[in-house]
Design a binder for these strands. Structure first.
Lengths: 205, 205
DNA sequence: TTAACGTTTGTCCAAACGGTCAAAAATTTC
DNA sequence: GAAATTTTTGACCGTTTGGACAAACGTTAA
């Protein structure tokens, strides 16, 4: 975390296998959290032996942190993309759409993140208090300005952002519940589109 | 799950100790999920030895299911209380308020529930597909009627309910993140009141 | 006082856990 | 193709885990 860490040179196989392991680890960690997951499970999922896996990652911790570090970038990208110079309505709409697509296309990433936060964010708290907070401060200011100018319905910009996070991620993290409640007919693939439309109506106009 | 189970007669000590263990288990399970928690941790938290704890509950599974079964009742109560004969605006407002109070006063229960769902709801899926679904169907019908009568802004009643769940529970499940982002000043006790006011504005009018 | 019952503890076990290691196997480099 | 290097494996280790058990302890009621 201090030194720049002299970017390790990796062979083709190392890159491929680390990728494969990351994929498997995502599957396992996102369901059971850090403590609830075992190296054996991940190795199984990746189709290799435990010692072989540990040849590519020095321990369980390193697999997890590698995963969550990569994730955080992807995770913040949609909010980063929100443009102060753009039209408020379509900026918010795009933001909701993007977050909703992430819930649909990367539910495991969402659950991994949720798991980490639920456990008290032991591994990423500094990131939340630093990078995330600064980003939200910045965008909240933008939103507040839009509201002041009457281009967006007035409310608390921080809780406005929280509400978008909560509702969009709900469709990834609580997917089982959503499908259970909606049943066969409405719980199919269309549920994400329905949800996106609902959320646009909720947050805009 | 089949037989009515002949209500076990319990001594005073048994009732007290089972209560004490439940309290401790809630603390531990809500942070680490089922697989991530150990009986030793729970016993420690309850201030007793592991064998002693296992005298009151026959295994880890039973502690968990006892906990989550009791929880489900409490959890659904606010939605149950929503009255078709009442005024839509104040019914929704009360519902949001109640859910928000639960996030503030029972965050561990909320996290326990979230953990279970994140893991795919292995222990309560039947309940979600049965009791919960029926309840939501019923209340969604009520809300739909209110909307048709023009007494509530028109939208999808199911996603409307999901959105209330997601936003209110966010303040319990993602509390660490909320506080990290809001910082010292706005992240204090007042955050629940701020959130409740924001949510009323979002869902009503 | 003692028999009966409820409670608590120390000890133990087999399985699962995170991780190591030396040696075999496969691959790349010369 | 041989040598050097990378990758894979099986065997192993110390620790933690869920759980069993008998013995000890405490409490009450005859």
């Amino acid at each position: 975390m201090d030194e720049p860490a002299p970017r390790p040179k990796r062979t083709r196989i190392q890159r491929e296998k680390r990728e494969l392991i990351g994929e498997a680890a995502l599957e396992v960690f996102s369901r059971h959290g850090f403590r609830g997951s075992t190296i054996d499970q991940i190795a199984d999922e990746a189709g290799m032996s435990k010692p072989n896996l540990l040849y590519y990652f020095k321990n369980k911790e390193e697999i997890f942190t590698t995963l969550i570090q990569r994730l955080m970038e992807t995770w913040l990208a949609p909010l980063r993309a929100m443009d102060a110079a753009g039209d408020p309505q379509s900026e918010i709409r795009s933001y909701i759409r993007r977050k909703m697509e992430m819930s649909r296309d990367f539910p495991r990433e969402s659950r991994l993140f949720a798991n980490e936060i639920l456990q008290g964010a032991p591994r990423i708290l500094p990131l939340l208090e630093g990078e995330l907070r600064e980003l939200v401060d910045e965008k909240a200011t933008v939103i507040a300005a839009w509201m002041r100018e009457g281009r967006l319905k007035k409310s608390d910009p921080y809780h406005f952002i929280f509400a978008i996070w909560a509702t969009t991620q709900h469709y990834a993290d609580f997917d089982v519940q959503v499908r259970a409640v909606l049943g066969e007919k409405r719980g199919g693939e269309g549920r994400f589109e329905d949800a996106a439309r609902f959320l646009e109506g909720l947050f805009l106009e």
